[in-house]
């Protein structure tokens, strides 16, 4: 591609990356937010390809495609309102956040504008992938090994953190408040009793003081 077309493509990808990034935090649907983030990543990957970092751009496509799909499934499994059927505003300190966001953009933008960066042409534009391969498998091998070990540790850590059953019994023993009535899990603080719709009203509907505690029926 010649210079003008690269500039046009860069403009389109840049606007799309920023616009989809903004959409992530304003859409009601969490699944739509996930795929907006994916679109933002894909546009940044395309810009990386334009920057002659083809390996990184394509790696970005693959990695983010998988990661955001997982995230979308996760949204449906865990989060409220995954399809955005209800209007939703789940934010705190919105004004501070906007101010900090604008300030950080302005700050980094000012650095970019003020920095006196000399443009150095790439010596061998057609050999960047080969050069990166030799670098990763050669003198940067230590970096690659650290990356690999870190990813293994991450896998182990993720399984340990998210497993329901620990090595010596249920993983959440000791991390939850004990039941008010020993042995009766429905009296545990913070546990929603299914179906009563009352949320934290645990004295509701288990047997008129049979457990010996005040169920509010004395009057």
């Amino acid at each position: 591609m010649t210079g003008t077309w690269v500039d046009i493509a860069f403009g389109v990808f840049a606007v799309a990356a920023a616009w989809f990034g903004w959409r992530v935090f304003v859409t009601d649907s969490m699944v739509r937010a996930t795929f907006s983030l994916l679109a933002s990543f894909l546009n940044v990957g395309a810009i990386l390809v334009l920057l002659l970092a083809e390996y990184l751009g394509v790696a970005m496509f693959f990695m983010m495609g998988v990661e955001m799909t997982v995230m979308a499934i996760y949204m449906v499994a865990f989060m409220m309102n995954p399809a955005g059927l209800n209007p939703m505003q789940m934010v705190h300190q919105p004004r501070v956040a906007v101010v900090v966001g604008v300030l950080s953009t302005a700050g980094f933008g000012a650095v970019a504008l003020a920095a006196d960066l000399d443009t150095v042409a790439i010596v061998d534009p057609d050999g960047t992938i080969r050069a990166l391969g030799h670098e990763l498998m050669g003198s940067s091998m230590l970096v690659m090994q650290v990356v690999g070990v870190t990813l293994v540790a991450t896998m182990v850590g993720a399984v340990v953190l998210s497993a329901a059953s620990g090595r010596f019994g249920p993983a959440d023993v000791g991390s939850v408040p004990p039941a008010i009535v020993p042995g009766d899990d429905t009296t545990r603080p913070g546990v929603d009793v299914g179906g009563d719709g009352g949320g934290h009203d645990h004295d509701h509907g288990h047997g008129g003081g049979a457990h010996g505690h005040d169920d509010g029926g004395d009057a």
């Binding site: 840049a14 920023a18 950080s104 953009t105 980094f108 933008g109 650095v111 970019a112």
Partner: peptide, 11 residues
């Protein structure tokens, strides 16, 4: 490109 990166970081 750095300006686009700054916008993404700010968002």
């Amino acid at each position: 490109v750095l300006l686009v990166a700054a916008v993404l970081l700010g968002i």
